[in-house]
Structures are given as C-alpha cells and as structure tokens.
Computed example of a mutant assay.
Amino acid sequence: MPDVNGNYTVSSFFSGAGLLDYAFMDSFKIVWANEIVKQAAQSYCANIGNHIRVGDITRIPLNEIPSTDVIIGGPPCQDYSSSGKNKGEKGERGKLVWAYLRIIKAKKPICFLFENVVGLCRKHKETLHRLIEQFDKMGYTVSWKVLNANQFEVAQHRERVFLVGVRKDLGFVFQFPENLKNKTKTVREAIGDLPAPDGSFSNHIATWTSPTPERIYDVMKNPRPNQFRGMRRVPWEGVSPTLTAHLSKDGRETLHSSEDRRLTVRECLRIMSVPDSYVYPENMPLTHQYKATGNGVAYNVGKALATALKSQLNAVPMQISMF
C-alpha cells in the first residue's frame, strides 16, 4: 500500500542498466532491483540508486527479496527474438519468464509490469497464453498489448509486448496509455542538435573507424549473403530501425545518417528517448554501453506506462489487505 506521501514501492527484476526504472522513478519509489551483469548494475547504481543487487535471480532466496506494491521487469528476450535462435522457454534465458512468475506468486504485489519482444506473442504465443493463464489463477487480471515506441515520440520503430497484471481484489483492469497520434519524432529531431562526437558531450564519442568509407559504400551497394542486415543508415527524416544489443558487436548494421561511422552511445540513447541526464559511467566499456541501450525500454514508453499505472492506482480506494 502507498506510504503517507502516496508513494508505491517497486522492486525491479532483470533491470539491466535501469532504463525502465529511470522512466518509473518519478512516479514510484524503487527500493530494490536485481541484475546479473555487473557492468549494467554499475550504471544502474550511478543513475538510479544503490539498491540494486548483483547476481543470478534464480539463486537469490525469496526471503531476501522485499515485498513491494509493484514489480516491474523484462526477462531476457533473446530466446524469443526473431533474430535469435528462437528456443523460446526451452532456452536458458527463455525459461526465466517462469522465474519472474514465481516471484510474483511468492511476493503477491498489487500489480506488476512485464516486458518482452514481440516474438513472445507471435511465434511463442503459447508461452504467452500459459503465462497469462497462470497469472489469472494466481489472482491477477492481465492486460497485454504490443506498443511501438515510434507512437510515443520516439525516433525508432521498436515494438515490444507489455503485460500489466492487477490483483483482482483491486477491482479494475489496467488501461494502456493512448498512442500519441500525429506526434512522431524523426532521427534529425532526436540527434540533429548534438555536437561533434569528440567526447565533449557525455557518452558521445566516435571510436569506430573500420571499415573504411569505401568498404561501407561497397557493402551497401553489394550486400554479402552472410550478413543478416548488411549496412544501413538511420534516415534523417524518418525513424530508426530497432536498436538491438547487437550494436555492441557490429555497429555497421546501424550507421549515422550522413557520417561514415556507427552511431555513438549518446545518439542511441537519444533514439531511445532517454534524457541526457542519464549518463553511463566513463569506466563502463563501450560494448556494455551499447548492449545495455539495445536491451532497454524506450524511455517515453516506460514513462507513459508508469504515469498511467500510477494514475489508475490512485483512483482505487486502497482498503485492500495483502494476500
């Protein structure tokens, strides 16, 4: 239940570098988080708080996890992604959706938010339906929807599936925020005002010089059969294709709109709509910065969800006992 100041407490799982939490922190009081990758957790700590615990969630005893009003998180999505091996819940990472469910069952928050790639509701829809069925049996009414970030003033085509479960004794069904129709944002609007990538602006440095411009133009005109996407530029007057964690391995998949280089980390964060106030620590390896960005939730989408959830919870009389 909210405290005297109306704050609902939140615990976060599979938190990454905290891009979803950063969007939630103005509306909710985040008191605990978990992430297995220490570099991502380092950035979480620097930007959100030192309440994050590093480690494998399947090895952390449930009694060491606090009970909070709300639980948020996005279990690893690689096994559900169309660009991955598509092992689904049989994959080592894919099975973690059930670890998330076990936490909900044990902690019984008044509501929860779950995020994943759209492959979960398409190729792996049976897993999604079984998850919803289990949440229903546990006493939650689940709403789910695919949201595209470009409909929330994000300069990127980024579809993700979101589930929001509300305990049935609260008596309401979560309503997703409306898309911001006719308010699309272009890549130019997102990154066009950034200075030259010389390191004078946080997380904005171009260190990638290979391949040569000649090689870039050659591959663009003559795609190689062993390259999944080849090389492509983000369009100045359009939206970027989906930024993924693969940026950490091969930035050639997503090049700057007019310069012969990959996007900088700050440009990627801007295309994720993340405020410039979010800064990766200088000693965090670039590969981890790109990976954490590609794995994150677009800030504007997270913000819209947080605002909607807080508003709908505030509209409900909280004379409800814990299970």
Score class of each variant (00 low, 15 high):
Ile60Leu: 12
Val316Gly: 03
Met231Asp: 05
Glu259Met: 15
Tyr280Ser: 02
Ala99Ser: 15
Thr212Phe: 06
Cys111Leu: 01
Gly294Tyr: 11
Val301Tyr: 04
Glu126Asp: 14
Val279Cys: 11
Leu113Ala: 13
Leu263Phe: 08
Ile103Leu: 15
Asp56Phe: 02
Trp208His: 06
Cys45Glu: 15
Glu133Asn: 11
Lys125Asn: 13
Ala46Pro: 00
Arg160Lys: 11
Val37Pro: 00
Arg215Ala: 10
Pro109Thr: 12
Pro225Asn: 12
Cys111Met: 01
Leu113Thr: 06
Pro241Asp: 02
Met318Thr: 05
Gln319Gly: 09
Ala196Asn: 10
Val316Gln: 10
Val117Asp: 03
Cys77Gln: 05
Pro275Ser: 07
Leu247Val: 00
Thr307Glu: 15
Trp144Glu: 11
Phe176Gln: 02
Gly165Gln: 09
Ile36Thr: 01
Asp26Gly: 03
Gln227Glu: 15
Gly296Leu: 06
Glu282Tyr: 07
Leu131Ile: 07
Lys310Ala: 13
Val154Arg: 06
Lys107Thr: 09
His288Gly: 00
Ala298Phe: 04
Phe176Thr: 01
Phe114Met: 11
Asp276Ala: 04
Thr287Pro: 00
Asp250Lys: 10
Asp169His: 01
Val166Ser: 06
Ile191Met: 08
Asp136Tyr: 13
Lys168Thr: 13
Lys95Val: 11
Leu163Lys: 04
Pro109Gly: 10
Ala196Glu: 14
Glu115Thr: 01
Asn300Phe: 02
Gly302Val: 06
Glu153Cys: 12
Tyr100Arg: 03
Gly6Lys: 05
Leu20Asn: 08
Arg261Glu: 13
Thr254Leu: 10
Val219Met: 08
Val166Asn: 07
Cys45Pro: 00
Phe228Gly: 00
Asn314Trp: 09
Lys123Ala: 04
Tyr290Lys: 06
Pro75Ala: 11
Arg188Cys: 02
Lys185Asn: 00
Ser15Cys: 04
Gln156Leu: 07
